[in-house]
Simulated assay, not measured.
Amino acid sequence: MQSTAPALPDVLCLRDIRFEDAAALLAGYGLELVLVGDGEPIPGSYWGEPEAGIIGPTVYVRRDTPVHSMLHEACHLIVLPPERRVQVHTDATDSVPEEDATCYLQIVLAGRLPGVGSDRLMADMDAWGYTYRLGSTRAWFEQDAEDARAWLTARGLLL
C-alpha cells in the first residue's frame, strides 16, 4: 500500500543539531527548550506535529521538529514583553508587525546557532512554504524588512 501523505521538505531538524546549543540560545532570552519524546504530541503546537509548540516561556520540540519552527516559535515569545509571555498558550501573535519581527529575528538568531546559519534557515523557510511578496525569504530579509528591523531595534532586540 502506497502512502498518500505529501513528502516533507528536506530541512534541518532538531536531530541534526546539538540540542544543548539550541537550549542555550533560547535560555539567553529567558526561555526553556523542552524535548518531547519521539512520536509524542507536542504541547502548544499551533500547526500540529512536528511543529514546535509554546506555552508561557517554554518552547516544546521533538527531534523531528524543524529548526526554523523552533526558532520561529521562540521568537514569537522573545518579541513579547515578559508579562505577555506568561499568558501565551499555542498562539502568540496579535499583529502583523509582531509576525514580521518574529520572522526577521529567527533569521538573525539562526546565524548564532552552530550548524544552522541564516543562509540555511532562509532556504529551509522557502522549502517549508513561507511566502513573501518578493518571492523568497532572502529577498524579503534583504530588501523589504525595514519595518521589522526598526520594530526589533526600537525594542532593544537588535543592535
Score class of each variant (00 low, 15 high):
M125N: 02
A123V: 05
Y130T: 05
P66I: 03
A101G: 09
R63Q: 15
V67K: 10
M122W: 11
T65Y: 05
W140E: 04
W128A: 14
E73S: 10
E49T: 13
D91L: 12
M122K: 09
T65L: 05
Q87Y: 06
Y46N: 07
T93E: 14
H76C: 02
Y104T: 00
W128M: 13
Y104M: 01
E146W: 11
P50G: 07
P57S: 15
G135F: 09
A145M: 13
E51N: 15
I78E: 00
L80Y: 00
L80I: 09
L113Y: 02
L113Q: 07
Y104D: 00
C75W: 02
V79M: 09
H72S: 10
R112Y: 07
G53M: 05
G111S: 00
G53W: 13
E73M: 08
S95Q: 03
D100S: 14
R112C: 06
I78V: 14
Y60P: 04
A123F: 01
L71A: 09
L77R: 13
V61C: 09
L109S: 04
W151R: 03
A101E: 00
D100L: 12
A139D: 10
T58W: 03
G115A: 05
P82F: 10
V108Y: 08
E98A: 11
A139C: 05
R62V: 04
S69N: 06
D124S: 07
I107K: 00
T131Q: 12
G156L: 02
V61H: 02
G115L: 09
A148D: 06
L113C: 07
G115F: 07
Q106N: 10
A139G: 07
W128E: 13
R85A: 10
W47I: 14
P82C: 07
L80H: 02
V116H: 10
Q87L: 15
I54N: 07
G135L: 14
A110I: 02
V59R: 04
E49A: 15
